[in-house]
Design a protein around this nucleic acid. Structure first.
Lengths: 208, 208
DNA sequence: GTCTATAGCTAGATAGAC
DNA sequence: GTCTATCTAGCTATAGAC
């Protein structure tokens, strides 16, 4: 198994990004120095700047390489668009919980980007675009369910979608201190209750 | 109007905290130097350390001086506990929007604490305590409305309270880029829709 | 493509005068 | 209570050898 010089370089670049994200997630962007990243990654500081130009470029690059949390939600939605809405929503919620539990790095990346985005307009835009994509896909889906007569005709789909997504994400943000097991249990209970109440408020009169 | 030496000192200390919070909110905690804070506040750097010991102490102190966002919510709840729930919730939502618009510093403090709490366990605990207090007061209120027959008996009050609070706060977080007027308009629409759907899902069968 | 060396600066914090 | 002066350490980024 020989590696070309380019492949090796690309692997090193990736490795730097991964290490950087771990450290940004743990201590924040500003509080993590390029020196510490270099040491932890086992490369020289100069190499980081060779590959990414600036520290901000490193964050950008590393963030771009990690899959967006919202992509996952959107993906779950597209899987079986004609399933009954209750089943669909519960499946999304369940998948969301499982994903956050399994892919801890993605979760931490999301968290750190959310935090840093409050002070870096560029990151704010990036994060905004990602979440808004998910919200839009969700609202579009809700619209199809209105058309199908499953949901009330006067449901305000944008707000409804934001409540659903926001409730999940807010829970995630405010329960990070729990360990994986406790978090999963609490998340399931919370998601169940949310979907339940949300549906009661959204279903068409006399729907099944 | 004479001021004692102590009063003057206390005023200066407050002033430093206010300036610091403005700057932390604008650029983040780590990215804001004590030097810049001193310059902006018109005092020496030494004085900051005299009053607050460390930079972290300054953040702690400044945060403690500002009223918690959640206090305001809790307060709104207590004002007229026997009003019909719909009126009550709309009043809270409206007050919440007005408050965030009027008291920009409190809003920024909340935002910066939320961001920094992802990397400072101490701040996380502080923020957690503040929001959980609000959630608990809200759930307790919801319980009284169940007892009064206004809300469904099987409503899971903790989750319901978190959805309500989380939806408002999440909106706040993801719409910071709007100017005050646009933000207020969007916030009103969103809050209305949220309360509306939330109530439909929470009211007892056959309630008015 | 990667490293070593270092420039040039800014950071948080302290000491001591007033 | 407040300021000036300063210490030391750490920072991002660059230059040039290999």
């Amino acid at each position: 198994m020989e590696r070309t010089r380019d492949e090796q370089a690309e692997a090193t670049k990736d490795h730097i990004a991964n290490v950087a994200m771990e450290m940004f997630a743990a201590h924040g962007f500003s509080a993590t120095s390029t020196r510490k990243i270099a040491k932890q990654a086992g490369v020289s500081e100069g190499l980081i700047f060779h590959h990414y130009g600036t520290k901000m470029g490193l964050l950008r690059g590393a963030a771009a390489r990690s899959g967006a949390l919202s992509d996952h939600i959107a993906q779950g939605l597209a899987a079986d668009p004609d399933a009954p809405i209750e089943e669909q929503l519960r499946r999304i919620a369940e998948g969301f919980v499982a994903f956050l539990r399994a892919d801890r790095l993605a979760a931490r990346v999301f968290r750190v980007l959310m935090a840093e985005s409050t002070t870096h307009p560029e990151l704010y835009a990036m994060q905004q675009e990602r979440t808004q994509t998910a919200v839009k896909q969700l609202s579009r889906y809700l619209s199809t369910r209105i058309a199908a007569g499953e949901l009330r005709g006067d449901l305000r789909v944008d707000s409804a979608a934001q409540v659903l997504l926001g409730s999940f994400l807010w829970f995630f943000f405010t329960h990070m201190h729990l360990d994986a097991d406790a978090w999963t249990t609490a998340a399931r209970v919370h998601c169940d209750a949310v979907v339940d109440q949300w549906l009661r408020g959204a279903l068409a009169e006399g729907a099944p």
